[in-house]
Nucleic acid binder design. Structure first.
Lengths: 337, 337
DNA sequence: TTGTAAGCGTTATCAC
DNA sequence: GTGATAACGCTTACAA
């Protein structure tokens, strides 16, 4: 392994001078710099990041903890974050939490191992009750649901507003009996499902449509499989409906399949809208209407918040910031174009 | 920051004893161990991975370089690899190469920074000409196309055989004029497209069907967008066809949209099959027939190869191994069920 | 069974 | 402009 000492010897300087060159410090004679760079090239020297990290406390890598990388939404989010982080010369290591509270706590603990300079945590399992656990001593940004009065920076989706707009969009298109396929009965957790359920309720109330509990379909996990099963179930239940708001696009893709299985036509018999605007939605048949929360903006904001924290170092810490993304309604074939 | 010294002081032992406890070394009195563990809990001590890494040369993290994490295929592959790596107590850091030769070379170089113990590189841009570049001095496994006589371990898909089976499946279902949507004219690179083109040709030859160049549709990138455009193009070209083999499922999903746009019905007018068996394929309408290369097996094999290399340390290096995965044809609605 | 000493490769500090 | 020294937190080798 080639070390900084080897380079120094080859260039006829001290290790410190090599270090100065590597780190772009001023006050190095142009000629010396050239000699050092030449030696670095000749020997194919690479800095040992671990050693640098030990000395500086920085790794140049941030952690990104998401429920599952194979769900399109998180894959697309991860890609955006990698892109945004690269602009700050940061690398991203992705952790999977398995969408569980335990997995998210693990991610919190792991980052204490100082492998990463900071952590972007996409929560689904942690709730307001876990506020204390978020008081970590390293830079962190929460990406996801709103945690009331959380002590950390927070980038959230416009969940309630987006869900209200999605439901209102269905109503505008003539739906009066809108099924909600979501992740379970509202509990005390502030999770995606209950927030989006709030939006759904608000939109119905605004339109003067009474909420019919038989139109609330709860599923166990936000997967295509569960979405498909839910759509089949409601189709065979005998309950009348003419619209469906699915809590995520992944669930909606499953629901489209479930309706097809049940012989229910989209959008003629039922209009369907999801939430997230994943890339696949524009290509499936029928293409999927959705709420687009501007992932790129969320990703770049999360990274910007984290970079801000990284820079705080000695200075006193700023108060926790919150950013709620904007959204647009994307009308496609599944709601009639 | 709590260090091993702090723990030692609190437990009334030396740092070495703490180290022994942390690393599960035997020869520590039960009572001493308990005292140390108590101190660790009390102080909320975490090992500094960078320091350990500097000393041991191990990080406990492997790198995974894939073209793009937001393509379903790679997302699902990454999830499998994370799962397989976790069984060996290894974490996975994901890099994006952007599907370019440069990006892949960057990934190769980055791992020299010793951030990772080893690298799983999913190649699409590197070819046999780059064999020399793969002679790196750290554990590496190539995941993807076959690189002739490569000097590294290699886990490959059954590209030619799978493509042949996919095409044969269309022929079995009655297709005689099978469109191939692939990534470009076969060059000297051994890439997915040219390998799968070989399989396509073989299947046609076996069935005694002459190859019609007008049925070869080349696209610029293996995306849904390109797939959709290709399907529209061939539909409007006036060329007759009754089947389509798309080089990946992502391209096939795009093609399904393109055919729908052009008023071509699947599977009545054209039967469509992809390659990769991504999860979405089972849910879209019509569901997508595909070649399943057993991702889980590929992922676990890649990790196993890498773990084997990690263990080599002092011993002499074994010869490079090669594993070609098996495959199955998954017949769904897009080829008539 | 526990502890001492040394060093992994780098950089902050400060002297020259 | 350049370099000597020490230190980051940990573990290997060996001593007690």
């Amino acid at each position: 392994m080639v070390t900084i000492q080897d380079v120094a010897r080859a260039a006829g300087v001290s290790a410190m001078t090599v270090s100065h060159v590597i780190n772009d410090h001023p006050h190095v004679k142009t000629e010396t710099r050239a000699r050092v760079l030449q030696a670095i090239t000749d020997l194919d020297y690479r800095v040992n990041v671990a050693a640098r990290n030990l000395r500086t406390g920085r790794t140049g890598t941030i952690g990104l903890a998401v429920p599952e990388v194979d769900r399109p939404y998180y894959g697309q989010l991860a890609a955006e974050i990698i892109t945004a982080a690269a602009r700050h010369n940061l690398k991203v290591a992705i952790e999977q939490t398995g969408a569980s509270r335990e997995g998210e706590l693990d991610a919190l603990a792991l980052s204490r191992n100082r492998l990463y300079d900071g952590l972007i945590l996409s929560t689904v399992g942690l709730g307001p009750a876990d506020t204390d656990l978020l008081k970590v001593d390293y830079p962190m940004v929460i990406l996801g649901e709103r945690i009331f009065d959380g002590p950390v920076d927070h980038v959230a989706m416009p969940n309630v507003e987006g869900a209200r707009a999605a439901t209102a969009h269905l109503i505008e298109r003539g739906c009066r009996r809108v099924v909600l396929i979501d992740g379970g009965p509202p509990g005390d957790e502030v999770d995606v499902s209950s927030l989006r359920y709030d939006g759904y309720r608000e939109a119905l109330a605004e339109a003067g449509i009474p909420l019919d509990p038989r139109l609330l379909v709860h599923i166990d996990g936000l997967t295509m499989e569960q979405g498909a099963a839910a759509a089949r179930r409601v189709s065979e239940s005998g309950v009348e409906f003419d619209g469906a708001f699915c809590v995520t696009d992944t669930v909606a893709m499953g629901a489209l399949r479930g309706f097809a299985d049940a012989g229910v036509r989209v959008p003629q018999d039922v209009k369907v809208i999801g939430f997230d605007n994943i890339a696949e939605g524009a290509y499936i048949v029928p293409s999927l209407s959705s709420i687009d929360p501007d992932h790129a903006l969320m990703a770049s904001t999360a990274v910007r918040f984290l970079v801000g924290r990284l820079a705080e170092k000695g200075k006193k810490r700023q108060v926790a910031r919150e950013f709620i993304s904007r959204f647009t309604v994307v009308a496609r074939e599944s709601t009639g174009g």
